[in-house]
Design a protein around this nucleic acid. Sequence first.
DNA 1: ACATTGACCTGGGAGC
DNA 2: TGCTCCCAGGTCAATG
Length: 288
Amino acid sequence: MPELPEVETVRRQMQHEMGKNPRIKKWIFHRSDLRFILPQRDLNSSLGQEITQISRRAKYILIKLKTASIISHLGMTGSWRKEVDVHFRRRKHDHVELHLSNGQIWVYEDPRRFGFIKWIENDQDLKNEFEELGPEPFLNQMNFDQVVKKFRQSHAEVKIALLNQKLIVGIGNIYASEILFRAKIHPQRTCSSIEISEWDRILKITEEILTQAIESGGSTIQNYKNTKGESGDFQKQHLVYGKKNKSCLHCSKKILCIEQAGRSTFFCPKCQPMKNKKSRIQTGRKIK
DNA sequence: ACATTGACCTGGGAGC
DNA sequence: TGCTCCCAGGTCAATG
């Protein structure tokens, strides 16, 4: 479900609504078999501790305590919502409740259970946990030359590489299509064939789109909801994602949907030409 | 060391 | 109404 803008939206709301340094009063676990088994014992060791900050790295939400951190990943369908009445109406896939000293109850709901909650003992462990991750997708948080060099060393198709969190974090299947459309890059071009000036365009547009999407509260396609149960707004600004057979807003050619690495990619064949026809024939996939 | 594939889950929508 | 099939925003282990 959630890519960086959705995760960041949730983070901001949690940080804002929790107020100043609430303490952890109680955990309630309804179901422990999320993507990883919930570390109930460790989480229970946090009782009485202050939450000093809610932060984010890539698509992970970090609930920071004095020395430890609690990592929450939303997988495809995970969400946090705030309840204020202990008799709140439970839902089928509410797995975890975090009760705070200020009376708030934060409920983790996740139908598909691809998400998880992890306990991280200290900052060194946190560093190790995120060791493999690429930089945040904002120009002032990356070394541009280094990032481009890594991309150009990759043999993958650019759409697939954009999803690789080792190269850059935060981009998921929706935004990858949107970024490449706006950058006018064919999703099946191989990373090594893309010029530096084009990478410049891709990375600038990535920052632009993700920033705008955060300002819109993220995108909702099926079921992403923020902590108040509200949908995002950015899907209204999607230009290609989910628009198979619709007319391209720039040239009115039909938007195509192809499969790459088992996932849908949407693009405009006219606005996003394959420069090198030869390599298109070699790497081409069936068009749905 | 890389790139690609399938598996992990449930729910919703399309088509019959 | 009910059945089956397909699809879905993410990641990682297992393959080649």
